[in-house]
């Protein structure tokens, strides 16, 4: 248990009779940058709130650094930097006052000037009242408070939401730097290119259930392969019609197939038409994600 930064066991949470998350067994290893993917309402925020002990599970357990999130929540939260998805701030305070207040209420106060460095990097003018900020600048305030205490675990709910591309990049740099300094990062995002760029592992949650947890490179190479063939003689239209294979394009330049299963059989068939060129086209995380959601069958898209 202690090898994991985050571990949930059979975690289910219902809002009355409405499903929040269902039987989630999640493991995030120490040192991971873990991307938590899913559409709106899938259960990402609910899972993160359970980890923060903001809401309690109906059944199941959640552990952070081996400690029960409900029973030892205070000790756990000393080591966590948290950015809520629906960030609400004290609008009448200046950002500087708010940072000082929030810092003073933390336990591991070891670098009182760190919030100012973070604010500078994000280009945030801390002398202004929070109510005067745009939504992007308010999000920057949230980023600063999550990172200000150099936590061992960062739980970030859509951290780049509402930020411009340059600031998004800075936030991703902060994530990488925190990770290099030893922090585990658990964040949800809709921007899959961002997740692919920074995360080493991802979990995909659909309708409250965790449907996949894999290393990013495994997910993008193992889920399906996209192969483009050029042939000496053009195969008939139904040449590759079989379970686990989708022909996505056909033109004079060749045929593109998405191969989910039976790669060996596909290669045999292709060889029979005289392969003149073969190319494996990289599959993005976004495509994998859409494949999981495309037909609602847990990823078996073929």
């Amino acid at each position: 248990m202690t090898d994991y930064a985050i571990e949930t066991k059979g975690l289910s949470l219902y809002y009355g009779r409405h499903r929040g998350v269902l039987d989630v067994d999640l493991r995030v290893e120490k040192g991971d940058i873990f991307g938590f993917l899913g559409p709106n309402g899938a259960g990402k925020t609910t899972t993160q709130r359970v980890l923060m002990d903001i809401i309690r599970p109906t059944v199941g357990k959640a552990y952070i650094f081996g400690k029960d999130c409900q029973k030892e929540g205070v000790a756990i939260r000393e080591r966590i930097g948290y950015l809520p998805g629906e960030l609400s701030l004290y609008n009448n305070m200046k950002a500087r006052q708010f940072f000082k207040m929030y810092y003073s209420l933390q336990k591991n106060n070891n670098d009182p000037g760190h919030w100012q460095k973070l604010a500078d990097r994000l280009g945030l003018d801390t002398s202004r009242k929070i109510r005067e900020y745009s939504s992007g600048n308010k999000q920057k305030v949230g980023i600063v408070i999550a990172f200000m205490n150099k936590p061992d675990l960062l739980i970030l709910d859509e951290p780049t939401s509402g930020l411009d591309p340059l600031v998004k990049q800075t936030v991703m740099e902060l994530v990488r730097e925190a990770n290099q300094a030893g922090a585990t990062v658990f964040f949800s995002s809709h921007i899959l290119s961002e997740v692919q760029a920074v995360c080493n592992r991802v979990g995909i949650i659909r309708e409250g259930q965790l449907v996949a947890t894999e290393r990013v490179e495994d997910l993008t190479t193992q889920h399906f392969r996209r192969i483009r063939f050029k042939f000496a003689k053009t195969p008939p239209g139904d040449a590759f019609t079989q379970e686990g294979v989708i022909e996505t394009s056909r033109d004079e330049g060749g045929i593109t197939l998405e191969v989910y299963t039976h790669l060996d059989r596909v290669m045999e068939q292709a060889t029979s038409f005289g392969i003149t060129d073969i190319e494996t086209i990289p599959v993005s995380l976004e495509e994998i994600f859409l494949a999981y959601y495309g037909k609602g069958n847990g990823g078996n898209n073929a």
Partner: peptide, 14 residues
């Protein structure tokens, strides 16, 4: 209701 309590509860304070 206005969401600020989430920030306070997420601090290491019982």
């Amino acid at each position: 209701d206005d969401g600020r309590l989430e920030l306070i509860v997420s601090l290491p304070i019982p």
